[in-house]
Structures are given as structure tokens and as C-alpha cells.
Design a protein around this nucleic acid. Structure first.
Lengths: 140, 140
DNA sequence: CTTGAGCCTGTACCAACTACAGACACTAGG
DNA sequence: CCTAGTGTCTGTAGTTGGTACAGGCTCAAG
């Protein structure tokens, strides 16, 4: 008969924030948009979390770090929650996301190329003539 | 004595939108945030634009296409408006922007690499085990 | 007994737009 | 002359992904 009056360290919102590194308010935000479940409440109406919430929040954060939108995170979680997720379904989501990332990279590289070659023509002097301004002004 | 009762085709908001490809509402937005000037109004309170507005809006749009934030656009315009802009000053703004673009590219490439190598391990089958889900779940 | 920390709620704010409602203005057709 | 359609005006709300703050409650320590 152990743990009679110190069963488990209870996790409240601040605790979950510290455990995960997530911002305190963001946790509540994730709850309101439905990617985090509404946790049970203590007698004083405090949110009470457990390990499953820690895991889920970390999943969300890691997904976000990899650039998944919250809508995509919702889809991933729906697959996981459904229990019937298949590797094939997840792969489709991941590949779709990968495509949009590759598009973004291509866009940024194009921008980087244009800017780099334009700035390279700058004298950098105290003169009003500037290739960058010209490039932005030209009718394109 | 020509153009006696057809002086110049007047440009209203819709006209400016068509000339530039800019969204109608965005033009008003740019005015409220101060990157586009308040144009004169007709007797019926319609905004009346001229070539200078077309040029300026195109400058803004081109800057946005190159990924400058509206705050950066404001800075660029301030230099141009001041009349005393120097190539050196513009170059500084452009290089700062370039740095942030390169950072974004690097971030996206890292993400792309992680996702690509993870998805590559997927069987894509109708099985619940999935390397992507594992990667998102792992404590990292 | 008071002070501070932590939690609660609702709401406002950021970028950079986009869209919509409701009210006028103007033009062409019937 | 009336009406339909288009264009414009204003203010305001919604988008994404958070972040922050105000005002109020509870609780533990000093």
C-alpha cells in the first residue's frame, strides 16, 4: 500500500508547458481548435493533464516543427486516433506536405537568385542610382 | 485644342486593380496602412488615381513578390520618397532581406531532408506501423 | 494576514490580406 | 420613367498560428 496520499504528481497547464516547452497560452489555443482534447478538471476548475496529453502535445509540436499546418496535424491525429491508420494513408499526407515544401523552397530559391544577382550590381555608394530600386520599379 | 471633353481616361479603384492585377480590396488596405497615398477624390467621393499610383503599386507588388514584408516595403518607399536614397542604403535593406530568405531556405531544406528520408522508409501498405508516425511520436 | 504564483475566462493583437454587408452612384435597356 | 446591373463607398469580420493581457479566483508560504 504505497502512494496513499501522493499518488502521482498532477500536471496542470503550467506543468505541461514546462514539460513540452510549449507556450502556456498555446496549449489553451490547441484545445479550443480541437487538436488537444479537453482535459478533466479539478474541483477548482483547473485543467488536469496526464502522460497521454504530454505525448499528444509533443506530437503536435513536432509536426509543426516539420511545417505541417494545424489542419494537416488534425488529419494526422485523426488517423492516429482512429486506430485504423495505415502507413499508406500517412504517406499520402506526408507526400502532399513534402510537395508544398518543395514548392516553397523553389519559390524562395528563385527569389534568392533574383535578389542576389541584382544586389551584386549595386555599387553600394552614396549615389541615388540603384539596381535594386530599378528592378523593383521596372514594369517586369 | 484637343482633348476638350475626354481629357484622360480616369483611373478609379477598379481600373487600378485591372492595370496592376492587384486585388481591389488590397488597394484600400495598402492605403490604410500608408504604403499607398490617399488619392484625390471625385465629386462623388471616388478615389481617382494616375500613373504615379500605378507605378507605386507595381513597386509594392514586385517587392512583395520578392518576399519583402510590408514593413520592409515601407522602408524602401521611404528611401525612394525621400529622394535622397542611396544605393548603399538600399543594399543594406536588400541584404538583410536576403539573409532571412536564406535562413528560410535552410530551414525548409532541413525539413525536406527529414521528411524525405522518413517517408522513404514507409512501406505504404495497409499496416498500422508507420515510420512517419514514429518520427512524430518519438521524444526527439 | 498578506503577498505571490498559478490558474481561469474572454478578448485583443500581429501579418497580409480577402470578403462581405449595406448604402449610394451611374449607365443602358425596355 | 423605371429597373437591373455594375461600380464604388464605408466598416467590419474572417483567415492562420499563435501570443498577451486584464480581471478575478485559489492556494501555499512567510
Amino acid at each position: 500500500m504505497k502512494n496513499h496520499h501522493k499518488p502521482v504528481k498532477i500536471i496542470r497547464r503550467g506543468g505541461l508547458a514546462k514539460l513540452t516547452g510549449c507556450n502556456l497560452e498555446t496549449i489553451r489555443y490547441y484545445e479550443t481548435i480541437g487538436v488537444m482534447p479537453e482535459p478533466p478538471r479539478s474541483s477548482k476548475n483547473y485543467r488536469v493533464y496526464d502522460d497521454s496529453h504530454v505525448t499528444r502535445l509533443r506530437f503536435i509540436m513536432r509536426s509543426r516543427e516539420l511545417g505541417f499546418t494545424l489542419e494537416e496535424v488534425r488529419d494526422l491525429l485523426a488517423l492516429v486516433d482512429g486506430g485504423a491508420q495505415t502507413c499508406g494513408e500517412v504517406q499520402v499526407l506526408a507526400n502532399t506536405h513534402l510537395t508544398s515544401i518543395r514548392t516553397k523552397i523553389a519559390d524562395l530559391k528563385r527569389i534568392e537568385h533574383v535578389l542576389t544577382s541584382t544586389v551584386a550590381q549595386c555599387t553600394g555608394d552614396d549615389v541615388p542610382e540603384c539596381p535594386v530600386i530599378d528592378a523593383l520599379t521596372e514594369v517586369a
